[in-house]
Nucleic acid binder design. Structure first.
Lengths: 206, 206
DNA sequence: ACCTGAACACCGTTCAAGT
DNA sequence: ACCTGAACACCGTTCAAGT
């Protein structure tokens, strides 16, 4: 007779998977540690062995999100062309897709604002993502397709535009049928913003 | 002898004020209807006469935030110069200031994503804010300082950049000492993005 | 090492009853 | 109309005890 073993097997992973499902299907307000434990067939106190608090579980979930997003972006850049315009378009497309397809998770990833001692790992993951766009811009500067100057002065507005676009899409400010065009418009907008001064735009370079 | 009257006087207003204070001082996670009631010197059931649920109180708070922000922006535009560059800079400055000074409230304003039946008033308030930037852009087009075309195709990227900038500032991605320069950079970035095609930028017009 | 059972101090919401 | 008191069905977290 197949009886439940005393040990779950991999409760930590199971809890994370269940949490992500709940997040996706019923939003962050519906996420309860006790309910997760029930769904995993385990006592209310069991999760505390793997996550010292509910916030710790949320942090772990957010970290997973950053890792997945970073991997998807890296893969997309791998496949993309060499011009700054091509690479920016690829980045924007994948980022927006991720944010829309994982709206609640994407929210969580940037919601460590009120965490008393925000998880260091989470901040590090975010920094890794930031490093990707910095590399993108430096390469663009090397090709003469992006205006010169400290990377941050371009990276910040660029990141703001992309993240803001994702926020608009997720909150429904953009009708879902027009998300792709909004993305194209934003990429064109950002390209003009990044263009070398006093000359042609990056998009019009050979 | 001064004894507490049976009626509070203006419980609704008192609850909203207490809620905003808690939000500001201890973040959204610390917001409890019961605690608010305690602080107002009233029974746990009393708030339900004024807000049919906790979410309804949050919606009312968000609505208040939109009203205040809209008023501040309108006042700033009133005082500002006539060029698109001037008006955009004024808008950006005030918006960013508001977001940073009211971080938790600003968050709340855009957090109706998972509200089952998102408050219509809240959506309307947001639309009013959107109308302000649309007017800004149309005026800029009228002066030949913004590229032609459907307003949305400029308004969306512009809004994305400003909202994204606010998000970066609030989450601490921008060191608080460099927020003002980041704002200036973003305004310059947006100006280039909005500029009439094939010509000088809006910033360089007389 | 991993989990249970029971307890503690909280929640939001509802509803009869009071003023 | 506005509020109280008491109840209901939940929470997150802790801690001795079990396997």
């Amino acid at each position: 007779m197949k009886t439940r073993p005393y040990h779950h097997g991999d409760l930590r992973t199971a809890l994370l998977a269940l949490a992500e499902q709940t997040l996706r299907e019923r939003g962050p307000g519906a996420l309860s540690l006790r309910e997760l434990a029930r769904e995993a067939g385990v006592s209310p106190a069991a999760p505390s062995r793997h996550f010292k608090s509910k916030q710790a579980l949320l942090d772990a979930l957010g970290l997973e999100g950053f890792d997945r997003l970073t991997a998807e972006l890296a893969a997309a850049l791998e496949r993309s062309g060499d011009t700054f315009a091509d690479r920016l378009a690829a980045l924007a497309r994948v980022y927006l897709e991720f944010a829309v397809a994982n709206a609640a998770l994407h929210d969580l990833m940037y919601a460590y604002k009120y965490d008393p001692d925000a998880s260091d790992e989470l901040i590090a993951a975010r920094r890794r993502l930031g490093a990707m766009t910095a590399e993108l811009i430096e390469a663009g500067q090397g090709r003469g397709e992006v205006c010169e100057g400290p990377v941050d002065r371009v990276a910040l507005p660029l990141t703001a535009a992309l993240q803001g676009l994702a926020a608009l899409a997720v909150t429904g400010a953009i009708p879902s049928g027009r998300i792709e065009r909004a993305a194209d418009d934003t990429v064109a907008f950002v390209l003009r913003g990044c263009a070398p001064t006093g000359g042609t735009t990056a998009a019009s370079l050979p």
